[in-house]
Design a protein around this nucleic acid. Structure first.
Length: 394
RNA sequence: AGAGAGGUGUCCGAGUGGUUGAAGGAGCACGCCUGGAAAGCGUGUAUACCCCUAAAGGGUAUCGAGGGUUCGAAUCCCUUCCUCUCUGCCA
C-alpha cells in the first residue's frame, strides 16, 4: 500500500498518479486519507501523554506503598481511575482512526511510474519492442485446440470429468513438453543468478495481504475455508512473503529467487470471447522470478528481468512484442509493467506469455520488507517479479 | 486428533507482580593495547508509531498473538497460534 507520509508530503504527485489510473474520486479519497492521518496522530499524542502520566503515578504508588504511606497511595489510585477511563476513550478513537486509515489505504492502487502512458484500456498500451517476423499460415492454419486433439497431448474433457472446466490433463508428449519447459525456464533462471525455491501452493491470509491479492482479488482465489488458506494465483505470493517482516542487511541485496508452481485462478466473471483451449485456465503452470532490491536499483533490475524473459522467447524462436502497460490496464499493485506477447498465427492475435513488474515500495510497505541503506537507516525495499513463462494467454 | 513440554532481544539464556527495553554470556561495531593479529580492557549494539527538530532530545507501545485481573504484568487468569516429544489415525 502507499506510504502515508508520501501522500502527505507529495500530494500532487500521488494525485496525478491515481488520475492516470482513472481511479474514481482520487482527490476526495486522498483528502480523506490526510484527515484520518491527522486525526490518528492527534489522538496518539493525547493518549501517549496520558499514559505517560499513568505510568509515573503507578510508580509513585509503588513507592508510597513501600514507605507505608497508605493514604497517599489510595488518593493516587482514585485519580488513576479517571486517567484510565480517558486513556480508554482515546485509545478507541485512535484505533478507529487507524483502522479506517488502513482500510482506505488498502483500496488505493500503486502510483504509476512517470513513463507509464495515460490510457484506459489494453488498446492504449505502448509497444516498446518487437522481435521476429509474424508467421502467416493461410487457409490451412490449425489452432492449438485442434492440434492437441490430433496429437492427443492435452485432454480438456478428462479434466472436466475429474475436476471441472479449465483443469486440463496433459498426456504423453504433452506432459513431457510441459515438464521440459519448466526445466528449461528454471535452468535459465539459475544461470541468470536466481536461487531456486519450491514453495507451498497454499498460503495464509497474511500472505495474501502482503503481496496485495487481498483484499483486491478476494474472489479470484480458491479458498480452503476449513483451514483459512488460499490456493496461490502465482508463486509471487509465497516467494515474496518469505521476506515479510524482514530487515535485510546491505550486503544481501539484490535478492533473486525463482520457483515453479502450479497456479490457480477462479477467473470469475472473465469468461467470454477468446476463451478457448489454453487461453484461460483455472490451473496452469508457471515459473516465476522475483527480485528484491534497493530503490535506486529497481528500474535497472526491471530492464534486466525484461531482457531475461525476452532471451527465453528468442531461444524458443517465438515472434514477440513488448508492451509498456498504460495506467488503465496495469495491475493494482504495480508501478510499471511490461507484458511480453507472443503472436499466435492460428488465432491471428497476440497472446500474453509473460509480465514483469516493479512494485516499488507498494508491496514492501504491506510486507514490512525493509533493508539497511548506505547510511544504515532502515527503509522500504523495492520488490519486482515476472513470469518466466505462463502457459496460457489472456 | 489426544497427552505432555515449551515459545523472552541477532543468538544462547535469566527472570513468578513494582521503577525491566528487560541480568549474564556470545556475536557484531568502534576505541585502547599490538610490528600485525589473537587474547585482554572500554564503549556501544531492537523495532514501530508519534512529538520536537538544523542537530540533539523526548513520549508511548512491544518478552508468539489477542483479551482479562491489578494503581502496576515478561511474571497471575482465559482464548488462540506455532514448535518439540509421545500416542492415535492415515489417501
Amino acid at each position: 500500500m502507499l506510504v502515508v507520509a508520501t501522500i502527505r508530503e507529495d500530494f500532487q504527485a500521488v494525485l496525478a498518479g491515481l488520475e492516470k489510473r482513472h481511479f474514481p474520486d482520487a482527490a476526495a479519497t486522498l483528502e480523506r486519507v490526510l484527515a484520518l492521518d491527522k486525526e490518528r496522530r492527534e489522538t496518539q499524542v493525547q493518549r501517549d501523554a496520558l499514559q505517560s502520566e499513568a505510568k509515573a503515578s503507578s510508580k509513585q504508588i509503588g513507592q508510597l506503598m513501600q514507605s507505608g504511606q497508605r493514604e497517599e497511595a489510595e488518593k493516587l489510585k482514585a485519580r488513576m481511575g479517571e486517567i484510565k477511563q480517558q486513556v480508554k476513550e482515546l485509545e478507541e478513537a485512535f484505533a478507529s482512526a487507524d483502522q479506517a486509515l488502513t482500510a482506505l489505504l488498502y483500496t488505493l492502487p500503486n502510483v504509476p511510474h512517470t513513463s507509464v502512458p495515460a490510457g484506459r484500456s489494453a488498446e492504449d498500451n505502448e509497444e516498446v519492442y518487437r522481435h521476429g517476423d509474424l508467421p502467416v499460415l493461410g487457409e490451412e492454419k490449425v489452432a492449438h485446440w485442434d492440434l492437441i486433439k490430433t496429437y492427443d497431448i492435452i485432454d480438456f474433457e478428462l479434466g472436466t470429468k475429474i475436476t471441472g472446466a479449465g483443469f486440463p490433463v496433459y498426456k504423453g508428449k504433452g506432459a513431457r513438453l510441459q515438464r521440459a519447459l519448466i526445466n528449461f525456464f528454471l535452468d535459465q533462471a539459475a544461470e541468470a543468478g536466481y536461487g531456486e525455491l519450491q514453495v507451498p501452493i497454499l498460503v495464509n491470509e497474511a500472505s495474501g495481504y502482503g503481496t496485495g491479492q487481498l483484499p483486491d482479488k478476494e474472489g479470484q482465489m480458491y479458498e480452503a475455508t476449513a483451514d483459512q488458506l488460499y490456493l496461490i494465483p502465482t508463486a509471487e505470493v509465497p516467494i515474496t512473503n518469505i521476506f515479510r517482516d524482514v530487515i535485510l542487511e546491505k550486503g544481501q541485496l539484490p535478492i533473486r529467487q525463482a520457483g515453479y508452481t502450479p497456479c490457480f485462478r477462479r477467473e470469475a466473471g472473465s469468461w467470454g470471447a477468446h476463451v478457448r483451449g489454453l487461453n484461460r485456465l483455472h490451473q496452469f503452470d508457471k515459473v516465476e522470478i522475483v527480485q528484491i532490491c534497493a530503490p535506486e536499483d529497481s528500474y535497472a533490475a526491471l530492464e534486466q528481468m525484461s531482457a531475461h524473459v525476452q532471451g527465453l522467447l528468442q531461444q524458443l524462436e517465438l515472434p514477440y512484442r513488448v508492451l509498456r502497460l498504460c495506467g488503465g490496464d496495469m495491475g493494482f499493485t504495480s508501478a510499471l509493467t511490461y507484458d511480453m506477447e507472443v503472436y499466435s498465427a492460428a488465432q491471428e492475435r497476440w497472446l500474453e506469455v509473460s509480465s514483469v513488474s516493479n512494485f516499488e515500495t507498494y508491496q514492501a510497505n504491506r510486507l514490512k520488507l525493509r533493508y539497511r541503506d548506505a547510511e544504515n537507516k532502515i527503509a522500504l525495499a523495492h520488490t519486482l517479479n515476472g513470469s518466466a513463462w505462463r502457459y496460457h494467454g489472456s
